[in-house]
Write a protein that binds this DNA or RNA. Structure first.
Length: 290
DNA sequence: CCAGTTCTTCCCATTACTTCA
DNA sequence: CCTGAAGTAATGGGAAGAACT
């Protein structure tokens, strides 16, 4: 426990001070200092900032005598009052910060030296470094959190984009499957009536009649309203059935008359892109819904 | 050499106090 | 002047490792 180390710190500093001649009765002041006891002096900058009041230069300062008088008046009171915390002085903190930048761990020798230079107790130096390490760690954690959050946000945006893309791919598969369905139910001898028949027949197949009627517009080119909802369950049935389109009674020649080069344009020429990912539509039908 | 004890330092959670808006 | 929030010095407990017996 650190309570023990406080005693040791005091012991150590006393040992050190015995070996060195420090003016102004610093030994007495230090030996008077007992942990948890009221500090002998209160300074606006520091709770036990002996350096500020006992330094050789300070004794020469005009304020010193006044200060000392006040301190003497308060001394007895202090001995009987609970300890009051004092913030470290600006210069002390600056000095400690510099020292912390060099090395954030504190060897005993360095602790004593800092304590001596700043006129603080070694215990205070140790505590300051401990708290400083804690603050540093908190800052690092905050930075890491911000970084992780930014990373998460990017991933999430990416994920949403992919979801959108996926939805578009589903719609495309829907569209192509429907085209197959249409072909399956087309009468090769009367292509135009067949198309309208197929529209009626498949009214139970998909969800949106308007979308179906739009498969072939006036220009005869297929198009599909991607914004409309689609019945994926029906699509599953459709994709299963769609394989039969190639077993149709219709001859190949008739097919070509109706949908010239349809297979080439619709399947074989599908280039790998963000929507089909390079897979054949047949394959997509199996993996897309898994 | 090993086991037990003591010492020292660290981290962590918390408290106590100061400062400031 | 009072008050709450934020910042920080200080405390206490536990863990780990080194030194000692």
């Amino acid at each position: 426990m650190e309570g023990g180390s406080v005693d040791d710190d005091s012991r150590m500093i006393n040992v050190l001070l015995k070996d060195e001649t420090i003016p102004c009765n610093s030994e007495v002041l230090d030996s008077l200092w007992v942990p948890n006891s009221p500090p002998p002096f209160h300074d606006s900058a520091s709770m036990v900032n002996f350096e500020n009041i006992r330094g050789e230069n300070n004794t020469e300062s005009p304020c010193f005598n006044t200060k000392m008088a006040n301190y003497n008046n308060e001394f007895d009171e202090c001995l009987h009052q609970p300890e009051k915390k004092r913030r470290l002085g600006e210069d002390q903190v600056k000095f400690l910060e510099k020292s912390f930048e060099v090395e954030n761990k504190l060897e005993p020798q360095r602790k004593l030296q800092l304590a001596k230079e700043l006129g603080l107790q070694p215990r205070q130096i140790a505590i300051w470094f401990q708290n400083r390490r804690a603050r540093y760690k908190t800052k690092i954690l905050e930075k890491e959190y911000d970084s992780l959050k930014a990373s998460y946000d990017r991933l999430r945006a990416n994920y949403e984009t992919l979801c959108k893309e996926n939805e578009e791919m589903k719609n495309e598969v829907n569209f192509l499957a429907e085209k197959l369905f249409t072909r399956e139910n087309t009468n090769p001898c009367d292509p135009f009536s067949s198309i309208s028949d197929s529209h009626q027949k498949k009214s139970n197949f998909s969800s949106n009649a308007s979308a179906k009627s739009d498969v072939f517009d006036n220009s005869g080119s297929p198009h599909y309203d991607y914004t409309e909802g689609n019945d994926h369950t029906a699509l599953l049935d459709l994709t299963a059935d769609s394989s039969r389109v190639f077993e149709s009674d219709c001859s190949q020649g008739e097919d070509e008359r109706l949908f010239p080069k349809l297979e080439v344009e619709s399947f074989d020429d599908l280039q790998p892109n963000s929507c089909n990912l390079g897979f054949l539509v047949q394959d997509q039908g199996t993996w897309l819904w898994q």
